[in-house]
Structure formats: C-alpha cells, structure tokens
Amino acid sequence: MAKDSRLILDPLTDNNPITIQVLGICSALAITAELEASIVMSISVLFVMGVGNVVISLMRNIIPSKIRIIAQLIVVATLVIIVDLVLKAFAYELSKTLSVFVGLIITNCIIMGRFEAFALGNGPWRSFLDGIGNALGYGIILVIVGFFRELLGSGTLLGIPVLGDPIEKTGLYATGYENNGFMLLSPMALIVVGIIIWVQRTRNKALIED
C-alpha cells in the first residue's frame, strides 16, 4: 500500500514530469498566461491520463509491440476528442483560448511517456494511480506558472482583480506599482519554469545535473 501512495506522491515533487522528466513542456508553456486556462488544461490532462493509462494497461497484452505507438495514439486521440467536445459545449470561450493546444494533448509527451514507461508493464489500478500522479505533478507546475504570470502580468487571479484597480489607482497601484505586461508574453513562461527548476534543485541537491 505504501508503494501505491508513492506512485501519486513521487511525480508531485522529486520525479515531476515537467521539471525532472522533461515531458509535456509544450502545452505547459503556451497556455499559462491565465490561471483559469492552466487549471482547465490540468483537468483535461488529468482525465486523459487517468482513463488512457487504464485502457492501455488493460490492452497491454493484446497490442502487438510493432504497432503500439499507433494504438496508443488512437486511444489518446479518442479521449482528447471527448475533452474537446465537452469544452466546446460547456466552456466555449475557454476552448477558443486554448485553441490547438487541446488537440496537442494527443502528442503531449507525458501521456505517451507514461504509456510506454508504465502502463504497458503494470496492472490497471497501479497504472491509474501513476496516471493521476503524473497529471497532478504536471498540473501543479501549470498552476504555479499560471498564478505568477497572471498575478504579475495583469494583477488578477482567475480574472478577479486582486491588487486594486490600475486605472483608478487604488490598492497596490496607489503606491506606484505597475503591471508587468512582459509576464504575459510567451518567453516569460520559459523563464518562470527555469526559475521553478532552479528553486527546486537548490532545495534538493540530489537532483542537480553534472
């Protein structure tokens, strides 16, 4: 049982898919200018990873190894179409913001990476936990990046102004604080992730590369 809980907890910190395994960077960077988009993306990936890992794990003995990549892609693509249609039905504005990046969950390397590395060799329950754990580890980075970019870039969280009104000069803006519009541009996502990696490796020396 203790081993099962590690499957969830490890990817959150010391084996994080983004900062340690370097998987699934593309979507993590492109959609994190707003916290809301980051959260929705994390939930979508959570769904696809959880279900996908179970399906692949159930089919692991009947997929010929030569065509396994195509088989995996079909499973993910089906799940992603479900996510895409649900988003279009219930959160149309948001699905416009995420644009092609919902589709790109298919080629998100976290998903293929975990299928290859875990689901093909383990039972459904453990694969499910592994999928959930890795998706949470991915989500946590997305939420951190989204939080800082939205807070520093537009002074809001989930669209609600938290630092006062920049035009009326209330709250923090009364002291002369300005929004840093640069945080909203795409390059800053890379730099924020770079800083997260820096902080994480400073706290845990074992992770430092040569």
Partner: peptide
C-alpha cells in the same frame, strides 16, 4: 549548480 542542464536551457530559450 542548481541551474545546470535543464534550468539554464529553459532560461536561454526564453531569452
């Protein structure tokens, strides 16, 4: 040391 490898690559790509 903590930036070596992945960290610095991210920051360079950002720049």
């Amino acid at each position: 040391p903590a930036l070596r490898g992945l960290g610095i690559t991210f920051i360079i790509t950002g720049l």
